[in-house]
């Protein structure tokens, strides 16, 4: 097997304005935290969007597998009473 010459992979999250959620943008390669932030800035914030950047080593993220998708998500789909639209609005309740 050939040796991997790439730097480590980092996931990039950016905040578009103060107080907003950090949204996943993609990933970059970098050898350390500081380089990861600089590379994230140059790759995903080239036109000035954003107020803050998070970078996280990709291998620090715990991810569910696609095989588990049925187990994790399906049970919710066939129980319509889990959804707010299942319930009729009481008459006279205006501000719900």
């Amino acid at each position: 097997m050939s040796k991997d010459t790439q730097f480590d992979s980092w996931e990039v999250f950016m905040q578009s304005r103060p107080g907003a959620n950090f949204i996943h943008q993609g990933s970059v390669h970098a050898s350390d935290k500081k380089m990861a932030i600089q590379n994230a800035r140059d790759t995903y914030s080239r036109r000035g969007e954003g107020t803050s950047i998070w970078v996280v080593p990709s291998n620090a993220i715990a991810a569910s597998t696609t095989e588990d998708a049925d187990m994790l998500f399906d049970p919710a789909n066939d129980k319509i009473f889990r959804l707010p639209t299942f319930y009729t609005m009481p008459e006279g309740a205006k501000h719900i």
Partner: peptide
């Protein structure tokens, strides 16, 4: 040398 540096 790498894509990210190319962009930088």
């Amino acid at each position: 040398p790498i894509l990210e540096e190319d962009l930088a």
